[in-house]
Design a binder for these strands. Structure first.
Lengths: 229, 229
DNA sequence: TGATTCCAAATCGTATATCATTTTCTTACA
DNA sequence: TGTAAGAAAATGATATACGATTTGGAATCA
């Protein structure tokens, strides 16, 4: 029986292709940490588990590869992407740049409600600090940033932000897990960003603030991390 | 005979998989404009032309899809991605942001030689103005920007820059084809960027200059373009 | 004539089969 | 005992085959 997979011939709803089913299935396992980095993704095994042939599974894994969640080696096979320390840092940096720009561009479109929602999320984050749980903190943190960026009129930029965010996804919680003290600073910086927006700061100021916010997260992560190559 | 495709069992060299051969082959046709936007990519036809089965072709096209060069429609097939006006603008904007940041980060690593090479390329661009050819101008233009960004220590950022650049690739020449006057301005702005670098301007200044440079290109493109939805 | 239905061709999606490569295990030899 | 050669197993890469879906057109009817 394994996992209940949505019937491909689901009546009424639009049936997903097997390749798509395999994609979401495997992806879910990766982001949930079920398949740890380095875990081998054997086509025949996955195909058997999903009760389909290897062809759609292969396609799914290639798609995951394109997103950077898996690595394929010719004639050897695929495995869940390793979390190279250097790459993690670089992606965080890139995310800061993209997110900063997206937030700045969104400025004129951010409504009172958006701002209120962001404030609310940051308040929730503050509450979380007392009984800290990296998982929920990370979740709220994502939603906070998403509220600010999603109004960006440039959809491509939003795509890039999300892609980068997801690439970091399956290990992002580690930042706050490893450096619990960072969470409090993070909330404070969020507040500063919200204040800037509310006080009609220039887009350059907001962009810089968001970028620095991520740099700071990154710095504390690195400080707490003895580089282990 | 058709196109001479590198033998998969090329002796000595590392043989490419058929999927990779198909990928580069189709991609080449797209970026060269041989396959215009909207052109259908029929698996069986391509497979026949490449003398292989449809399986690797399919894989190649999915890869192209992931890069945004092709679009796949379920049970219908793939076609070369349409050049949506809005998407073009958004990608250009995103490229400006990424390139600006990459160039700024590269500042401390740009050597005298790099600067000289960039200067040389811009001089070549200036010469090209007299007997203008959009194709070579675009080529040189790319190399100019590449010299500045490639020293960026953040490889991920370079990846993103290149990905965005290539996404625009198959229609980038149009900017200078449609707005020939823009080329001269472009060269002047390049010169300003080089001057900033030479005079040890702050990274923020350089970043802004590069970003504005692309904004200006975009603006003149839009000005010369009656929006045709 | 125009719209509708139905059939056939085109093409994709997936399964199965075969070939190629890599890895691992065994075995023989120094 | 350690190493190297070779066979066997595992797995990926590709080919072929077949079923499913879409699309275009022919035939039918009002």
């Amino acid at each position: 029986m394994s996992t209940a997979v949505a019937s491909p011939s689901a009546p009424g709803g639009e049936s997903l292709s097997k390749a798509q089913i395999a994609y979401t299935w495997v992806r879910e396992r990766i982001v949930s940490g079920d398949y740890a980095p380095g875990h081998r993704l054997v086509l025949s095994t996955l195909a058997a588990e999903l009760d389909m042939s290897v062809v759609p599974v292969r396609e799914a894994i290639r798609q995951l590869e394109a997103e950077g969640l898996a690595n394929f080696e010719r004639n050897v096979g695929a495995r869940v992407a390793m979390i190279d320390e250097a790459r993690y840092v670089e992606s965080m940096e890139a995310l800061g740049i993209l997110e900063g720009a997206a937030t700045a561009m969104a400025l004129s479109s951010i409504s009172e409600e958006d701002l209120a929602q962001a404030q609310d999320l940051n308040d929730q984050l503050r509450v979380t600090l007392e009984d800290f749980d990296p998982k929920t903190f990370t979740e709220l943190n994502h939603r906070f940033h998403n509220v600010l960026t999603c109004r960006c009129p440039n959809e491509r930029l939003i795509e890039l932000v999300n892609a980068e965010w997801e690439k970091l996804g399956h290990l992002r919680e580690s930042t706050f897990s490893f450096v619990p003290g960072r969470a409090a600073e993070s909330v404070a910086e969020h507040q500063r960003i919200l204040d800037l927006i509310e006080n009609r700061a220039t887009s350059a100021q907001v962009e810089a603030a968001v970028r620095e916010h991520r740099s700071a997260t990154l710095a504390s992560y690195l400080a707490a991390h003895p580089n282990h190559p």
